[in-house]
Each structure stands twice: as structure tokens, then as C-alpha cells.
Amino acid sequence: MESIRTIDQRAYDWLVTRDVEKWTILYDYGARYGTMTTNASESFNGVLKRSRGLPIQALISATYYHCITMFLKREEDSKN
């Protein structure tokens, strides 16, 4: 917060008036966001990294099948 204050006092003042649970992961206690967004994007980047040298059609297919596999696994996990 001190770094933000030094850069822009108005931004600091705006953040201070907001509920910290709404804008920071530190105080969300895992209830709202956690690190789910980061994990999803890193997972997707992992798929692309392995498929980088493929032609576009194969790249799209690999991404599609990987996403389907992830969705099915999560569906099974949520049922359990």
C-alpha cells in the first residue's frame, strides 16, 4: 500500500475506502477467488507449450481435447 501511495495518492485513497476482501487475495480466505484464475491460465499455457510446433488444426484439436479431459475430471471430482 505504501508503494501505491507513493505512486498515486488518489489510487491509495480509493483503495482505502474499499472492502479489502473485494480487491485483494490476501483477505479472501479462499471463499471467492483464491488462485483459481492463475491456475487456469497456467494450465492452458501448459497445453499450448506442449503443442507449440503443431500445425494450427492439430493445435486447436489438442487444446480442445485437453479442455474436455479437464472438464470431465472436474465433473467427476465434484460428484465425489
Rank of each mutant, 00 (worst) to 15 (best):
residue 60 I to M: 10
residue 70 M to P: 03
residue 43 S to N: 05
residue 13 D to P: 00
residue 41 S to A: 09
residue 15 L to C: 11
residue 39 N to T: 09
residue 40 A to F: 06
residue 36 M to Y: 00
residue 23 W to I: 03
residue 31 A to N: 10
residue 33 Y to I: 08
residue 17 T to I: 01
residue 25 I to M: 11
residue 47 V to N: 02
residue 64 Y to H: 14
residue 23 W to F: 15
residue 37 T to V: 12
residue 20 V to T: 09
residue 76 E to M: 00
residue 8 D to T: 04
residue 47 V to W: 07
residue 70 M to C: 07
residue 70 M to F: 03
residue 60 I to C: 12
residue 75 E to W: 08
residue 25 I to K: 12
residue 47 V to I: 15
residue 76 E to N: 04
residue 53 G to S: 07
residue 6 T to Q: 14
residue 51 S to P: 01
residue 1 M to D: 08
residue 50 R to M: 11
residue 50 R to D: 14
residue 8 D to K: 14
residue 20 V to Y: 00
residue 48 L to H: 05
residue 51 S to F: 01
residue 71 F to M: 07
residue 74 R to D: 03
residue 55 P to G: 07
residue 70 M to L: 13
residue 59 L to T: 10
residue 40 A to K: 02
residue 32 R to W: 09
residue 4 I to C: 10
residue 28 D to C: 08
residue 56 I to H: 07
residue 74 R to Q: 07
residue 38 T to A: 14
residue 59 L to M: 12
residue 35 T to N: 12
residue 18 R to V: 04
residue 77 D to C: 01
residue 29 Y to Q: 13
residue 25 I to Y: 13
residue 35 T to L: 08
residue 23 W to E: 02
residue 59 L to D: 00
residue 42 E to C: 12
residue 15 L to P: 02
residue 21 E to T: 15
residue 53 G to M: 01
residue 56 I to A: 14
residue 11 A to D: 01
residue 77 D to L: 08
residue 29 Y to N: 15
residue 1 M to Q: 06
residue 56 I to P: 07
residue 7 I to W: 10
residue 42 E to S: 09
residue 23 W to V: 03
residue 64 Y to C: 07
residue 57 Q to N: 11
residue 65 Y to P: 02
residue 74 R to C: 06
residue 35 T to P: 01
residue 72 L to A: 09
residue 53 G to E: 05
residue 4 I to W: 01
residue 64 Y to I: 04
residue 80 N to Y: 02
residue 48 L to S: 07
residue 19 D to A: 08
residue 67 C to D: 03
residue 70 M to K: 15
residue 64 Y to L: 09
residue 8 D to Q: 04
residue 63 T to Q: 10
residue 77 D to Q: 12
residue 20 V to D: 02
residue 14 W to C: 06
residue 80 N to I: 05
residue 49 K to E: 15
residue 34 G to P: 03
residue 26 L to W: 06
residue 72 L to K: 15
residue 71 F to E: 00
residue 44 F to N: 01
residue 32 R to T: 14
residue 22 K to H: 11
residue 55 P to Y: 04
residue 9 Q to G: 00
residue 37 T to R: 08
residue 73 K to Y: 05
residue 5 R to S: 06
residue 55 P to D: 14
residue 12 Y to W: 13
residue 76 E to C: 02
residue 16 V to E: 08
residue 54 L to V: 00
residue 46 G to S: 06
residue 67 C to E: 04
residue 66 H to Y: 05
residue 27 Y to N: 11
residue 23 W to P: 00
residue 54 L to A: 13
residue 22 K to Q: 12
residue 37 T to A: 12
